[in-house]
Design a binder for these strands. Structure first.
Length: 113
DNA sequence: TGTTTGACCACGG
DNA sequence: GCCGTGGCCAAAC
């Protein structure tokens, strides 16, 4: 683990800011953080497994599909977590994803720390 | 040190 | 509206 601040921390911070019962996608985070590469968000979330306060289950791909469910402890845990927050999941896709979609820019001015 | 891959997205056909 | 291709940056091999 590293202490030096990286885009990981920014991704983690943004994901933590995601309101409960709301979901976002990699592109939004990548665009908000100006990473220029959505793949990095996925990589960051991959390391987020070591974090407890990072609700990675609220992050889905642009299609609203739970692309990362396979990376969780159990493939169904991600869906269970989302449903537990009031987010309906059907066929591994977020129902009304377009409506439940949340953009980090909604925070306006935010502080990673 | 160069190649490959990765929880992706945008664009074009 | 679906499928194929390119691009993006970073880490692992």
């Amino acid at each position: 683990m590293k202490d030096m601040p990286t885009y990981y921390d920014l991704v983690y911070a943004v994901v933590r800011k995601v309101p409960r019962g709301r979901v976002t996608n990699y592109g939004a985070i990548a665009d908000f953080l100006a990473l220029g590469a959505s793949r990095m968000v996925g990589w960051a979330l991959n390391n987020s497994h070591f974090m407890d306060d990072v609700p990675a289950h609220r992050v889905v791909n642009r299609k609203g599909e739970l692309s990362g469910r396979h990376h969780f402890a159990t493939p169904t845990m991600m869906q269970e977590l989302l449903e537990s927050e009031g987010v309906k999941i059907e066929d591994n896709c977020v129902v009304e994803f377009k409506t439940l979609f949340w953009h980090p820019q909604e925070l306006g001015d935010w502080e990673p720390f």
